[in-house]
């Protein structure tokens, strides 16, 4: 592999990793407060892409010429808001009634919700892949040996900005503090006057909004979307979350970037046909040898 090729793969890997990081954050946050894997999270990512698909042709004509950038922001914000609403709704209807039940019950419900969104999506949107409208022109920047597209740069910048915003929310705001408190010890937090239901709704909303952005960013660079796209990306993002240490926010970001880079390099090698199995193999490896991930701390189970 030449040096140019190496850096090209690195750039592609970083921008791919940015998507994984955005979705992984949602898994990790929900796991942090509820200790369960929200299987339906990858499908919120898919719905984000489809919301972008339907909103763009309806909203963009109202923002002609120089206003186009405003239009993009409006589409993205609206998608985030709708995804957040959906995430909150799913939690309220499907997970909240089961909170006191065995974990397995919630897990099976989450699988059910995930399937419902996938095949309900297939029913509503149609099963065939759709080409995403040109929200932002995804052209190559510069003319050197390396190719970086505008979409890749935007994806990366947006991810970093959202990470900063998220860190601010979690570390500096009152709700963020409540989130950390619930994650640390839900019973104690509720005794201290933290409204657990609000915190959980907020967490679902935040995570789903990030997944919605990820859906749009993904569609800008990959151009085709379909109702089952959330399955693969969801599992990969989950792997990223576990890689970084589930429940750990910076861990999810680092895990996402790392997985993106690893996957791109394997995709460029002679094992390219095994690319989709990489995430699984990695996941199994981590869970077997270091289940706490890179940043997580091992926890001793108390009887």
């Amino acid at each position: 592999m030449s040096q140019v090729e190496f850096f090209q793969q690195l750039i592609n890997g970083l921008s791919l990793g940015a998507f994984y990081a955005l979705i992984a954050l949602g898994y990790t946050m929900v796991y942090g407060v509820l200790r369960f894997i929200n299987f339906a999270h990858g499908d919120i990512f898919m719905l984000g892409a489809f919301l972008g698909y339907y909103l763009t042709p309806r909203l963009m004509p109202h923002f002609p010429g120089a206003l186009a950038a405003v239009g993009v922001v409006v589409v993205v914000l609206l998608t985030m808001a709708l995804c957040a609403l959906l995430g909150i709704l799913i939690e309220k209807l499907a997970y909240r009634p089961l909170r006191a039940r065995p974990k397995l019950t919630v897990l099976i419900t989450a699988i059910g919700v995930s399937l419902f969104l996938e095949f309900g999506g297939q029913f509503v949107f149609g099963a065939d892949p759709k080409s995403f409208p040109e929200l932002i022109e995804d052209r190559a920047l510069g003319s050197g040996a390396l190719t970086i597209t505008k979409g890749q740069v935007i994806a990366f910048v947006v991810t970093v900005l959202l990470l900063v915003a998220l860190t601010f929310i979690v570390k500096r705001t009152k709700l963020g503090m409540a989130m950390r408190a619930v994650s640390n010890n839900a019973t104690a937090a509720s005794l201290m006057g933290v409204n657990i239901d609000t915190v959980i709704s907020f967490t679902f909303g935040l995570g789903s909004a990030l997944a919605g952005v990820a859906g749009i960013l993904w569609s800008i660079t990959n151009t085709t979307i379909d109702p089952l796209m959330g399955v693969q990306q969801g599992i990969k993002a989950f792997t990223a979350a576990v890689l970084g240490g589930i429940g750990n926010l910076p861990g999810a970001a680092v895990g996402g970037i790392l997985l993106g880079v690893i996957e791109t390099f394997v995709g460029g090698s002679s094992f390219s046909t095994y690319r989709d199995a990489i995430a699984f193999a990695l996941l199994i490896g981590i869970l077997l040898f270091r289940p706490a991930g890179i940043f997580g701390r091992m926890q001793v189970e108390k009887v």
Partner: peptide, 15 residues
Amino acid sequence: SRMILFSILLIALML
């Protein structure tokens, strides 16, 4: 579409 049916069945059963 049997998958929609199964997903609703799963959720309803759990609830």
